[in-house]
Write a protein that binds this DNA or RNA. Structure first.
Length: 480
RNA sequence: GGCCCCGUGGUCAAGUGGUUAAGACAUCGCCCUUUCACGGCGGUAACAUGGGUUCGAAUCCCGUCGGGGUCACCA
């Protein structure tokens, strides 16, 4: 294979959604697998909709995911002379022509075509304008676009690595525009010029471009350029099978980041949407996917993304993550939830993260699960109250517990558990009769880390205070 | 509507003419356990449909249906 050069070419008109991210990812995996290069190109020929903010969001998203590129970003808006040069050349060779039709005229043509039940195609009105007429119109200052002369007959076939050969009848295309009246190239034209100039070997992009591809091939042929390989990756659909959009909740990479997902988990998950390693293992590193990634293994079906599976994967990564890295990721969530301020005790937080992470699936959930370590004033879980606090004699058991704990000097996991076990034996009760109410008293919850982990983390003073507070609470509800 | 792509459980997805049609998530049950998770075990659940071809079809062909894309001076 010749030198592999692929590109990711977003148009900066929104944020990086998971479909775009996966396209970028597949390009990246393909480049890395083949020791090739990934070029980042910015398709910003739509002046109206392109924004710098969007560009920044996309770049940030890629970086955060760990998708790096070897060249670029190259901005199409800075290469306008190039497109003009090629367009002029096509006109000179008679393969393209100026069209002076206005938008209004075109609208009329379209609606008339539809009236008689024909596809709304350009009629080719300006295709055979004489040089004199062209000159006259230009001198009059008439605006014009450049259209490609599309052959009326024959077929154009797209050789697609994922889909095989796809044939299109040339008669279904009209003389489409390659240069707009504001001197900007259209997408199809600029794409071909740039992919050629940048020596792109494989064009890997979303399936929504498949119908564009024959048009681009027509341009390649008019220009006499050698064609690259094509691979159209199926789209990622929203849960209702429609195209991804804002109304579907979390669809952008940024949004998942804010929700507390880890980049590794997202990468793993979106890789899985259309590709699996040969051994079928679904949890894998990027090293492995780079090693094994080939386009012919990419699935043809569109995929509906499933947040539940992403969340499950995220949980796996959270459990595996280096504890310091995880702690650093959790801290911003703790701050934004108002649980800690800037002068936090890192080591203490790390211990708590370590204790709670086992049972949480997102960074945000970890932060929520840590709340009672920082807040004394929490309410008790309602069901827990019914089940444990309203039971006869709990307050007495807890009183005994307080007395026992007070005597512990070395207030650690092992010592506290020992005295608790002794107490259970002495009182002749079941361990649950003591453990459950204690947990509820000191955390407000019925679930969480091991009871003695919590006790040790909380420390003697807080543990005892909270149990005493719970005793008062129990007395108050029993009086009623 | 024309053209194009796609169609295996709720979701992702193995499968390339002969399989008891994998696996994962989700879901349900059981086990583990001081709780919740994790983990383990087990269950429910699929080849859109109708015709061919073939000894034999999820796999090949055609029609139908369904979903999606595209037909812009958007990309």
């Amino acid at each position: 294979m010749k030198d592999v050069r692929v590109r990711f070419a977003p148009s900066p008109t929104g944020n990086l959604h998971i479909g775009g991210a996966r396209t970028a990812l597949f390009n990246w995996l393909f480049a890395r697998h083949n020791n090739g290069k990934l070029i980042l190109r910015v398709d910003d020929t739509d002046l109206e909709r392109s924004t710098g903010d969007s560009m920044k969001a996309i770049l940030d998203g890629l970086k955060w995911l760990g998708i790096d590129w070897d060249e670029g970003p190259v901005y199409q808006s800075k290469r306008l002379e190039l497109y003009k040069k090629y367009a002029d050349e096509l006109v000179r060779q008679g393969k393209a022509y100026y069209c002076f039709c206005t938008k209004e005229e075109l609208d009329i043509m379209r609606s008339e075509a539809q009236k008689v039940g024909k596809p709304p195609m350009y009629t080719g009105k300006c295709r055979n304008l004489s040089p004199d007429e062209v000159k006259k119109y230009i001198d009059e200052g008439k605006k014009y676009v450049v259209r490609l002369k599309v052959p009326k007959e024959g077929k154009t076939v797209v050789h697609d690595i994922i889909r095989g050969d796809v044939e299109f009848d040339n008669s279904t295309f009209d003389d489409f525009i390659i240069m707009k009246s504001d001197n900007m190239p259209t997408y199809n034209f600029a794409t071909v010029i740039d992919d050629y100039e940048m020596k792109i070997s494989h064009i890997i992009r979303g399936e929504e471009h498949l119908s564009n591809t024959p048009k681009q091939i027509l341009i390649y042929e008019a220009l006499g350029f050698e064609k690259p390989e094509f691979a159209h990756v199926s789209m990622i659909l929203a849960p209702d099978r429609s195209k991804l959009s804002k109304r579907h909740g979390a669809t952008s990479v940024q949004k998942f980041r804010d929700l507390g997902y880890l980049p590794e988990a997202i990468i793993n998950y979106i890789t899985l949407l259309g590709w699996v390693p040969s051994d079928g293992e679904e949890v894998f590193t990027t090293e492995k996917s780079i090693r094994e990634f080939t386009l012919d293994r990419v699935s043809k079906n569109p995929a509906i993304y499933d947040t539940k599976k992403l969340t499950w994967l995220n949980g796996i990564y959270i459990r595996d993550y280096n504890i310091d890295r995880l702690t650093k990721e959790v801290i911003p969530f703790l701050i934004s939830k108002g649980l800690i301020s800037d002068d936090y005790d890192y080591n203490y937080i790390r211990k708590i993260v370590s204790a709670v992470r086992e049972r949480e699936k997102t960074l945000s959930e970890i932060a929520d699960a840590m709340s009672y370590y920082f807040v004394d004033d929490f309410s008790y879980d309602e069901k827990g109250v019914k089940k444990y606090f309203e039971k006869d004699g709990v307050e007495n058991i807890l009183r005994e517990a307080v007395e026992t704990l007070k005597k512990v000097d070395d207030f650690n996991l092992i010592e506290t558990e020992n005295v608790y076990r002794d107490l259970i034996e002495r009182l002749n009760i079941k361990s649950g009769d003591l453990f459950h109410p204690t947990r509820l008293a000191i955390s407000g919850r019925t679930f969480g880390p091991g009871l003695f982990d919590i006790i040790e983390l909380l420390g003697k003073e807080k543990t005892i205070k909270r149990i005493e507070k719970a005793i008062k609470y129990i007395e108050s509800i029993k009086q009623r």
